[in-house]
Simulated scan of single mutants.
Amino acid sequence: MAASLAAVKKEMRKGIRDKLKELSVATITFQSSDVMLTFFSMPEYKAARRISVYLSMPVGEINTSNIVRDALSQGKDVFIPYTYTLPSPNEGQPKSIMDMLQLKSMDDFNALQPDKWGIPTPSEDSIASRANCFGSTGITNGETTTGIEAGLDLIVMPGMAFDSNFGRLGHGKGFYDYFLTRCHQASRMPFRVGLSLTEQFLPPNESVPMDSSDFRLDALITGDGELRRAGAS
């Protein structure tokens, strides 16, 4: 069953990836602008003091740079993904995991260098001095202890595909689902928002294949600016 689910997910990613190759930069920019207008109006975003946001690739997904700018300008604590290999994974832990590390300023953001996917990434020598969202400094090596003032209020999540039941298909590494499992263990689950190009939003008769380790979203904003909320009638 697990092998079959993985094969279905892989095939869906391929289909979406082929669609995204056809999109122009102008189309992504236009959709990103509509998404931002809706996102900034959300009461959950306005109230959030600590947020995590993915830093977008040059193409193929909603651009999030304006979220970083707006959140920092409002004095919110902004955390970004950082993935790394665990030196000695415990039983049940993946070999590589993701922490959320703090951006210190717009100058810090502008100094990030693109990785092999074009995603702005902090330098290795800066990692040890960055706060992580679980309340300590540097990478956590999978520790999940969260202080009263730690954790996240809201997390902006990327994906390859999204559906009307708030399912999300990731890129296949499992980073976000394992990170959210750790948040759940620490008893501090953030409000989960997905941002989807219209080409990534599946038609009503299709859904993202999910298993027990996959987390659904609390809200989804599509490239036409429409906000969908889980549980809304």
Results as ranks from 00 to 15, higher is better:
5 L>K: 10
74 Q>I: 02
33 S>L: 11
11 E>G: 02
39 F>T: 14
155 I>H: 14
192 R>Q: 12
189 M>I: 13
105 S>E: 12
9 K>R: 12
26 A>E: 09
114 P>Y: 02
205 N>Y: 12
173 K>M: 13
103 L>K: 08
11 E>Y: 00
19 K>T: 03
52 S>W: 04
106 M>I: 13
172 G>Q: 01
36 M>R: 06
125 D>F: 05
63 N>C: 03
63 N>E: 01
135 G>Q: 01
121 T>F: 00
79 F>L: 13
164 S>V: 03
108 D>V: 00
45 Y>G: 03
150 A>I: 07
5 L>P: 03
185 Q>S: 05
200 Q>V: 01
74 Q>C: 11
212 S>A: 12
230 A>N: 12
59 V>S: 06
172 G>W: 01
199 E>R: 10
94 P>Q: 08
94 P>M: 04
161 A>I: 11
12 M>G: 05
123 S>F: 07
158 P>N: 12
24 S>H: 10
47 A>L: 08
217 L>K: 09
33 S>W: 02
62 I>A: 09
147 G>S: 14
48 A>W: 06
71 A>H: 09
99 D>K: 07
124 E>A: 14
81 P>E: 02
116 K>E: 08
141 N>R: 00
34 D>A: 15
194 G>D: 06
203 P>H: 02
86 L>D: 05
13 R>N: 05
192 R>L: 14
26 A>T: 11
86 L>T: 00
210 M>V: 07
55 L>D: 06
224 D>K: 07
190 P>A: 06
55 L>E: 10
127 I>D: 10
14 K>F: 09
168 R>V: 14
119 I>W: 06
185 Q>E: 15
109 F>Q: 07
197 L>G: 11
63 N>Q: 15
11 E>R: 12
186 A>E: 07
111 A>M: 14
84 Y>L: 06
18 D>P: 00
82 Y>H: 13
28 I>L: 07
137 T>N: 11
20 L>V: 11
113 Q>P: 00
10 K>N: 03
198 T>I: 15
54 Y>G: 09
19 K>Y: 02
94 P>C: 03
139 I>A: 00
27 T>Q: 06
46 K>I: 09
121 T>D: 01
153 D>G: 05
156 V>C: 10
142 G>C: 10
29 T>G: 00
170 G>N: 12
148 I>K: 12
94 P>A: 00
212 S>D: 13
109 F>S: 10
38 T>C: 15
210 M>L: 14
122 P>I: 10
70 D>W: 13
49 R>I: 02
217 L>R: 11
112 L>W: 01
223 G>V: 12
84 Y>M: 00
225 G>E: 07
217 L>S: 07
201 F>T: 02
